[in-house]
Amino acid sequence: MAEREGPRLDVPRAPRRNLLPEYDPDAFGRTSERIARFLGTGRFLVWMTVVIIAWVGWNVLAPDAWRFDRYPFIFLTLVLSLQASYAAPLILLAQNRQDDRDRVNLEQDRKRNERSIADTEFLTREIASLRMGLGEVATRDWIRSELAELVKDLESSASWAERPDEERAGRHPSPESE
């Protein structure tokens, strides 16, 4: 039997060497969220304002030999553009991660609501069946009313039995017999 040439399917491939750097996407995402959270604070705005005022103040008021960015402040513009070009994708990445978390939370809420609705419907059916079953059960008030009717029947029977025989037979006593 001739051996097959080519890769064997029962043997795992040897790991290939990757020229790109490897990173943990979750660690990168957490770091980007921290940066985005900081960029959205008043503290960042205050520090950025202080740095820009110091930068402009230094390059306007310092002696000519000490200035590193002359009047049109091209280097400052470059630094702010670089900061913005990194901040925008980091903020978008943080928003995407938040959207993913929100989506998972909404899905969990939806499942929880479905379970609550199913539980409520089950309890509603159980209560309805109990009410129907209670309709056939003798209640205390019903038993009392039945007993009261029996007592009245017994009293009327007892009073009937105590009457003279002529009255019971439907004859009225004659005035002469009195």
Rank of each mutant, 00 (worst) to 15 (best):
A2K: 13
A2P: 08
E3N: 12
E3C: 10
E5F: 10
E5K: 14
E5T: 15
G6S: 12
R8T: 00
P15Y: 02
P15K: 11
L19R: 13
L19P: 08
L20A: 10
E22R: 15
Y23C: 04
P25V: 00
D26L: 07
R30P: 01
I35S: 02
I35R: 03
R37S: 13
F38D: 01
T41W: 09
T41K: 11
T41E: 10
F44T: 04
L45M: 10
T49K: 06
V50E: 08
I53A: 14
A54R: 12
W55L: 08
G57C: 01
W58S: 13
P63Q: 09
A65W: 12
A65P: 06
W66N: 14
W66M: 12
R67I: 04
F68K: 15
I74G: 05
L78A: 10
V79M: 13
S81A: 15
L82K: 15
A84K: 14
S85H: 14
A88Y: 06
A88V: 13
I91M: 09
L92F: 03
L92C: 02
L92S: 09
Q98E: 13
D102S: 09
R103N: 08
R103W: 03
V104Q: 08
V104R: 12
Q108G: 00
D109N: 13
F122R: 15
L123F: 14
L123S: 04
T124E: 13
T124S: 11
I127W: 10
A128W: 09
L130S: 11
R131S: 05
R131Y: 01
V137C: 04
A138I: 01
D141S: 12
D141M: 04
I143W: 02
I143E: 03
R144F: 05
R144Q: 12
S145I: 07
E146K: 05
L147E: 08
V151L: 14
D153V: 06
D153C: 09
W160L: 13
W160K: 12
A161N: 07
D165C: 12
E166T: 07
E166W: 04
R168P: 02
E176M: 03
